[in-house]
Simulated assay, not measured.
Amino acid sequence: MVFVTAGALDGPLLTATLRLRADHAPPGTRSRVFAVGAGLEITAATSGTALAGAAAGLPAPVLLLAVAASHAVAGLLHPVLRGTARSPAALSEATSASRRVQ
């Protein structure tokens, strides 16, 4: 049942990821953005699997604490990383400005 739930929730996540890449990637680099994104996803999934395998022998409370800590770190990093991200309009302007210079 857990695998069915994970599979059902993976569909919307993949759809949102692909949509965000399509919306935010500059037109000339779209294929590279998709390829690099796919590579990063595979690397992250492999790393997560390795960490889960290494942590399999730990008691459940320790694992739950590790999950909670990773969520807390993600919550703290989100405002920092969001402030440094460039908007689609800024990316579009930067791309067109670099084309004018060339």
Rank of each mutant, 00 (worst) to 15 (best):
G57F: 01
P27A: 15
A72F: 06
V33F: 15
G57V: 03
A72I: 08
A22N: 12
L51G: 05
A54K: 06
S47A: 15
V62Y: 01
T15P: 00
P79H: 00
P27C: 00
L81I: 00
T95K: 03
E93D: 14
S31A: 13
A89E: 14
G48E: 04
T49Y: 11
L14W: 05
M1N: 10
P26F: 04
S92M: 07
V62G: 06
R82A: 14
F3A: 11
R99F: 07
V80C: 02
P61C: 06
L40D: 08
A90H: 08
H78G: 05
A60C: 01
L18V: 02
V62F: 06
P88A: 00
P88F: 00
T15M: 13
G48K: 04
G7F: 06
Q102M: 03
T84K: 05
T5Y: 03
A50S: 09
A22K: 13
S47W: 12
A85V: 00
T5D: 01
T84Y: 02
D10L: 13
P88C: 02
V4M: 10
L20P: 04
A56E: 05
V2T: 10
S87A: 10
G11P: 00
G53V: 04
A72L: 15
T5S: 10
A22T: 11
V80Y: 05
H24C: 13
L58K: 02
D10Y: 05
A55M: 04
R21L: 14
R100C: 04
V101K: 08
L76I: 03
H24D: 11
E41H: 08
V36D: 08
R99V: 13
L14F: 08
A66M: 15
A55N: 04
V67F: 09
A72S: 10
L13P: 02
P12G: 01
T43R: 11
A16L: 14
P79R: 00
T43N: 07
I42V: 15
S47L: 15
I42E: 13
A45P: 13
G75K: 05
L9A: 08
A66W: 02
M1T: 08
L18E: 12
A52M: 11
V33K: 10
A25L: 12
L51S: 07
L9M: 12
T17F: 13
S47Q: 06
A16G: 06
L65Y: 01
T84C: 06
A38S: 14
R30I: 02
P27S: 11
V62E: 09
L81F: 11
S92A: 15
V73N: 05
R32G: 14
P12W: 00
F34C: 07
V101D: 11
T46C: 12
L65D: 09
Q102W: 07
V4K: 06
A66H: 07
R86A: 14
P12C: 03
R99D: 14
T84W: 11
V101G: 02
R21F: 12
H24P: 00
